[in-house]
Design a binder for these strands. Structure first.
Length: 529
RNA sequence: GCCCCCGUAGUUCAAUGGACAGAACGAGGGACUUCUAAUCCCUAGAUCGAGGUUCGAUUCCUCGCGGGGGCACCA
């Protein structure tokens, strides 16, 4: 729809121009509006309004009433378009034809994209904040896939570093009743682990705590993620895929050959200062052990050079922002294009209790787990709630309040719209109008609903470009609102068979689009409520 | 000290530089003998401050104020 209008406008101005075409909130401003006259007036100095008036005439004559019902130049220079109802009905028929493919498309340049997310240290249960990044990553992957890209969803398992060692020591200290150091992990789950591993102290020591981390991953992290509806295509182990295979050493040698890794003060440093506005960073410490940074560079060598991803999206907590420039510089040293590495920072969730902030800390054993969140408010409500916020929002979250309000979560508004649609369809004998029969749809609430439904392809397309996932749940709410409004105003199952068939077609289209949106969000739609 | 993010109705959040700043919850009022009232309709209510750029600023720039996070041979 948008593309057709864009083409008409471009034809009228006879040149390429960077203008906007949007669907305004106010129906007074038409179904679509453009600022093209403002853009052109910058170049030739004429008043936007007169340019707009001229363009309207041109557009009207080329279109000749095919797509546009009415076009108007309005002060100070906007052009508003009202679509020909026939076009709306064609688009509606399109939904009914394409069904679950409606909105999906094949991008002109399909890419091999990796989305790496959650990647929490396997040193404790997943927290609510891990959930936020998880929901975002899972949904973003779905969006990119809907645009015809090949997507790999990956979890990076930090099972080789200091944190895992600390985990092992924390458990050992309880088993062997030795001193509990400040930096140790605490909390009930550590005690439970100590009980579980009480006869395996030797194994913990031998594996540097990895055996405990593996257990946590298998028995806690993976099931939690599954319950949250967060799926992964690949679990990448730092220990097995990098350390054990000697990949760290290989990347180090590669960098040394290029003269980018140098030794001084007993350590090996990566010369990022030559390549980016970054100071040199340590790859191998003076005690001979590799830094986490070296593992990360090797990991991205694997992503870009060995697996040849066209694009890599890493989703991190905002507390890692200082690491962004460093990793991009690191990526450059191994010959990867930093432009192809996209890092999305998700702000931390502020945990509130009785209006007061209550600090979360995994090490102190004080946090809300993803499991608690799922148990208390449910997968769909939790998922929908978190996805409604932009990643850069510092969201406040109060579990008690969330429990109390969970019944008012907008997800139920959307699900209820869906259930109502199913109810009507089951009473409507199944026969829906063909394209010609859709002409019966002409009331305000009917047209409003159609206009909302046909925005879906544009919204999905835009989201594949700017990753603003929070737009999706909001669109689901908009559709639901338009549907509830329609439902309250127009009787579907009624005496006039032509009207009934047309309205059943509209309800059917609503069902289809809601399914398509919520599938991408990973939120289930119930059959009844 | 330096770096990143945020500041919008009472509250939690929206708004690719566009027109009269939208929702939800909360507040007030109305609507069920008909497809599920977990709904619909109506009302009140907001851009932290000061400059700047622009035809136009919640959005971009500068400064200030307030909040969150980060500045290791930790991860």
């Amino acid at each position: 729809m948008k593309e057709v209008l864009e083409k008409l406008i471009t034809q009228a101005i006879g040149q390429k121009a960077d203008f906007d075409l949007t669907a305004p909130d106010k129906s007074d401003f038409g179904d679509y509006a453009t600022n093209v006259a403002f853009v052109l007036s910058k170049a030739d100095g004429r008043s936007p309004l007169s340019i707009a008036q001229e363009l309207v005439e041109k557009i009207k004559s080329t279109d000749n009433g095919k797509v546009i019902n009415k076009a108007e130049a309005v002060a100070p220079g906007f052009i508003n378009f009202w679509l020909n109802p026939e076009i709306l009905l064609q688009e509606l028929a399109d939904i009914l034809d394409q069904k679950n493919k409606y909105g999906r498309f094949k991008t002109a340049t399909p890419q091999k994209i990796q989305v790496e997310f959650v990647s929490a240290n396997p040193t404790g249960p997943l927290t609510m904040a891990n959930g936020r990044g998880g929901f975002l990553g899972a949904t973003l992957a779905n969006v990119l896939e809907a645009a015809g890209n090949k997507v790999v969803r990956e979890f990076y398992i930090n099972d080789a570093g200091n944190q895992v060692k600390l985990l092992g020591e924390s458990v050992l200290a309880i088993i062997e009743s030795t001193e509990l150091k400040d930096e140790y992990y605490k909390g009930d789950y550590i005690k439970k682990l100590a009980d579980k591993f009480k006869n395996k102290a030797g194994r913990i020591k031998k594996t540097g705590g990895r055996i405990v981390a593996d257990y946590l991953l298998r028995r806690h992290l993976k099931p939690s993620l599954k319950n949250a509806g967060i799926k992964f295509d690949n679990w990448f182990s730092e220990y097995r895929n990098l350390h054990k295979k000697g990949e760290l050493q290989k990347v180090l040698e590669f960098l040394e050959d290029k003269g980018l890794a140098i030794e001084h003060d007993g350590a090996t440093w990566l010369k990022t200062s030559d390549i980016a506005d970054e100071k040199d960073r340590v790859l191998v410490k003076s005690d001979g052990s590799p830094t986490y940074f070296l593992a990360d560079v090797a990991y991205h060598y694997d992503k870009f050079i060995k697996r040849k991803f066209d694009k890599v999206i890493d989703i991190w907590g905002a507390d890692h922002h200082g690491y962004v420039a460093r990793l991009k510089a690191g990526a450059k040293t191994i010959g990867a294009d930093p432009e192809k590495l996209e890092i999305i920072l998700v702000q931390l969730v502020r945990l509130m209790k009785d209006g007061q902030e209550s600090r979360m800390s995994k090490r102190a054993g004080q946090f809300i787990t993803l499991d608690e969140l799922l148990n208390e408010v449910g997968k769909d409500a939790a998922r929908f709630h978190f996805l409604m916020y932009a990643p850069e929002t510092h969201m406040d979250f109060d579990l008690e309040l969330a429990k109390e309000k969970s019944l008012k979560n907008p997800v139920y508004y959307v699900q209820y719209a869906y259930v109502r649609a199913l109810g009507v369809l089951s009473k409507g004998s199944g026969s829906i109008a063909n394209h010609a029969g859709l002409k019966e749809l002409s009331s305000d609430s009917e047209l409003r609903l159609i206009k909302e439904l046909i925005k879906w392809p544009d919204i999905l397309r835009q989201t594949t470009e700017d990753y603003q996932i929070n737009r999706l749940p909001r669109h689901a709410i908009d559709i639901s609102r338009a549907f509830h409004n329609f439902y309250e105003h127009e009787r579907v199952v009624c005496v006039d068979p032509a009207i009934m068939k047309a309205r059943l077609a509209l309800v059917s289209a609503t069902k289809i689009v809601l399914e398509n949106v919520l599938n991408i969000l990973g939120v289930d739609l119930p059959k009844k409520m």
